[in-house]
């Protein structure tokens, strides 16, 4: 499934034109993106949470050369699926 398939679903479900549906879908993902970029989490009931986590600096090793390197601190985005999503994927329905 790609963004085009999602746009098609929105188009069929809402009565907006394809062009409008494409713009709105883009705006939804942009809004999620700008929100997490600010470090704020997104909680989508029935789907899951997008959470920004701070990673501390740590020592790592280049697996090819064995050379020790420092991995600098950074912020990463994690996704924690909801129980509903996990159940749906395992064919357990919505419980």
């Amino acid at each position: 499934m790609t963004k085009a398939d999602i746009i098609e679903k929105v188009y069929l479900k809402t009565g907006f034109s394809k062009k409008e549906s494409a713009e709105i879908v883009e705006q939804v993902f942009d809004l999620v993106k700008t929100t997490v970029a600010k470090g704020e989490k997104i909680k989508l009931a029935g789907f899951g949470n997008f959470v920004v986590k701070e990673k501390a600096t740590r020592r790592g090793r280049n697996p090819q050369t064995g050379e020790e390197i420092e991995i600098s601190s950074r912020r990463i985005l994690t996704f924690k699926p909801s129980q509903v999503l996990k159940s749906a994927i395992n064919g357990e329905g919505e419980d």
Binding site: V10, T14, V28, L44, G46
Partner: peptide, 10 residues
């Protein structure tokens, strides 16, 4: 719209 998108992904 938001439900259609995320239910669709699910």
């Amino acid at each position: 719209i938001v439900n259609t998108i995320f239910d669709g992904i699910r």
